[in-house]
Design a protein around this nucleic acid. Structure first.
Lengths: 245, 245
DNA sequence: CGTACCTTTGACGGCTGTCAAAGGAAGTGG
DNA sequence: CCACTTCCTTTGACAGCCGTCAAAGGTACG
């Protein structure tokens, strides 16, 4: 396996170091990469979680549908993210997952994960850490939505994505392009598309961002961070030292 | 140990059956119950997570403080809840935890948890399931806040607490009393105290709830559920069958 | 070239926040 | 038991953020 090849191990070893045996175990059990098209769904709400996916290429998102038919977006998945770990312990999925772009995923059966964790408590810990980390992003957005107005919410969310892209070295220089529609912004932040459009226009007029179709570009990180009250603390934390060894 | 005595085992075995060995291991490692006063803090944001607590008696909440000094409440803990599992893998706490009432907690050292999980993969799984379940409550409130107005948010939150109390048989008959101040409501739901007061008055005038100082009482579950779009699905899910055995 | 998707703009209304003030209930110290 | 403080709630006036409705134009895609 060359380093280009997507692997669940690269997701799981971000928080805790895995041994040689752990890595081999994961490699054995992972399925071959699979091409997936934009708008295809990895699963629907209500399905039994039976597969995890590592996102090798492309973007995806998870969402919840209310009875009224409205949709709320909960997570944006970027290349390298582990999709499904957050709900793997449930007997039905609360959220569906859909590709935002064409992409490639590497499937990993839940049953294999169980066996892997039985053979290595470090793997179990890595799995838990990965899920907690992912959930922390959601928690942080709840805090964002609870305490900020539209302008700050958008600023905060843009910065969240930026720092996650930076972590995987997917930013293109000082500024960066965020390929999300305004509709996605609205579904993530509890705003209407109309108001997102207005607010992005405001931010652009203030010189904080640049707007394009299906994308925005951050121009002034300094002022945007102040506006959002953003602290990039939580994104790259190492595991609790008391859980090591 | 009699059944009255609080124990981490009762939290962990809610989602997956634990073996005799697992239970003995947990009993051995748990510390003696400890009285805690209202307003005392179990830890502060920034601390290293070194202890879990099972809440034996009383209520508690976790919160995040923004730079501006405003506070957002993330979780309400009820008797039987495991406090700290959500952030146990992080090297610093993102949220502080404070007692809402006088109470009793049973401490459990994180290092002991690590050793317990090394000796039993089932315990590791139980820990993961417990954390995921707790996170799901937060995720559901994000969905709530993203898609509902003040009246529905309040209705949804009241029902969330009700079903959690029902699960631990702490409801007092058909209706029940929810001992939360309006300030707590506002911090949970991203509203002002003033607006919470107004909205509760509206709900009371419609006969859906009864209002008291520091508490409300649900009168009409049927209509309140419709208003909130509430589905009590997610609260009592068993573990993914593919992870068993 | 036609259709679907994405964005923008304006007018209007209402939900919700802000500011201010007041009173009642609970807790505290004397 | 009383005075005092603190906390919790309520009410009113007012402003503004944001949603709704409607229409139009631009861009991608087949």
């Amino acid at each position: 396996m060359d380093t280009q090849e997507c692997c669940i191990k690269r997701s799981l070893c971000q928080h805790i170091e895995l041994g040689e045996e752990d890595l081999l175990l994961l490699e054995e059990l992972e399925h071959a990469p699979k091409e997936v098209e934009r708008r295809s769904q990895l699963w629907k709400a209500g399905d039994v979680p039976e597969m995890l996916y590592t996102l090798q290429r492309g973007w995806a998102y998870s969402f919840h549908c209310s009875k009224g038919g409205s949709r709320q977006v909960l997570e944006i998945f970027l290349p390298g993210d582990l999709i499904g770990i957050r709900e793997v312990t449930f007997n039905t999925h609360y959220t569906g997952v859909e590709m935002l772009t064409d992409g490639v995923v590497c499937p990993f059966p839940v049953q294999s994960l169980r066996r892997a964790c039985q053979r290595s408590s470090t793997l179990g810990l890595a799995m838990h850490a990965s899920a907690s980390h992912q959930q922390a992003v959601i928690t942080e957005r709840l805090v964002n939505v609870l305490s900020h107005d539209a302008k700050s919410r958008i600023a905060h969310f843009a910065l969240e994505i930026y720092y996650r892209l930076e972590r995987i070295h997917a930013t293109d220089g000082g500024s960066f392009t965020l390929p999300l529609t305004q509709r996605l912004f609205s579904l993530m932040l509890g705003l209407t598309e109309v108001h997102v459009s207005r607010t992005l226009t405001d931010l652009a007029e203030e010189g904080l961002i640049h707007k394009r179709r299906n994308a925005i570009r951050i121009l002034d990180f300094e002022r945007l961070s102040v506006l959002a009250g953003f602290v990039p603390e939580h994104c790259s934390e190492a595991i609790n030292p008391l859980l090591r060894g």
